[in-house]
Amino acid sequence: MTGDPTSPQDIRLGDAARGFVGKIRRLDALQTGSGSSLSAQELEQRLVEMGFVEGARVEILHEGAIRRDPIAVRVDSATIALRRSEAMAVIVE
């Protein structure tokens, strides 16, 4: 893991395809600028409450039929369904 927060390998979970396996680097709801309606802080809090914390292993298991949305993500020992717009706040590698 590199300490550089703007590493070019940064991927947003909301952009990742089905089958993606990675590790959460950090949460960044401020720059998502996308469809999610929650305030950046609230979105980050909710993500943490669902287990999206730094270092957790994530895997995209399933995606919906329309525009491949929402997605079902395995986060360590639980499976969480969320919309891609909200998953944009999760930076993975």
Partner: peptide, 8 residues
Amino acid sequence: PFMLELPD
């Protein structure tokens, strides 16, 4: 938001 756990 739509965020929910898919239980086993």
